[in-house]
Amino acid sequence: MKEGDSELGNLLPDSVGSWEIGRGDQIYTRETLYDYINGGAELYLSYGFKRSLSRLYRMAGEPDIIVDLFEMENPQSAFGVFTHSRETIEADFGQGSQYTPGFLTFWKDRYLASILASPETPNSRGAVLQIAVAIDSAIVGEGSLPRILALLPQEGLAEPSIRYFRHHVWLNSHYFVSDENILNIDQDTEAVLAKYKGEGTGHLLLLVQYREETDAQVAYERFVSSFIPERVRQPAVQLEDGRWATSELIAKLVVVVLNAPTESEARDALEEVRVHINQ
């Protein structure tokens, strides 16, 4: 950790009303992020974290406000971290935001902002919103969304559930498949997982895009042989919990349907992707 950084620091206000900077800014790099957010660092590092700035705002009689501004390697990474725990679709700040009492986060361009005021008070809430406005204004550019998102069929899509990642552990975070990386998801691949409305609880759709078709072929075969070997001779596979799964290889894309309540929903979901991609 080191103190001060004009480039990142310039994106944050020096003060907000009576809230003043409470201590020197702290800068963290890939090597030092563990010192700041030990267990949490893995998430940011896996998304191409470059550096972050932590600033504390203080006002007498009020809880401190902690602002963390993360600079990621590209906008897609910032979006990916943002979606990791997104619950709702809001766009009050940046290119997507989420507010819950005491905590506001948003992403814009290659930046992810986190503003924590705990416990929230009427004063701190106002300050949090002002800080967010200031950061939003200071980040001039906007970034593009991951291209793989366009491959998700829109009908039935529960948009807040979209999770974008390039590290296999985040698949297991949302739906445990295997402790091994049987889809070969890494920094050269893009993966998106989303919930779809259907019968009952609906199903999950996972798309993994590989750099080359041969990579996709290898991953598809590994996934099928490891997880749903029955897929070789049948269109969908009923798992031991009664739910259905299926998968298909489409050029550089591996399509996986998970947790479908019926065989027909699993098959239909696959067909939806085929149709959508060919449109």
Partner: peptide
């Protein structure tokens, strides 16, 4: 019972 943000803490 649930965490968000870099500090994995949200009073909610």
């Amino acid at each position: 019972f649930h965490g968000t943000g870099p500090h994995h803490f949200n009073p909610q």
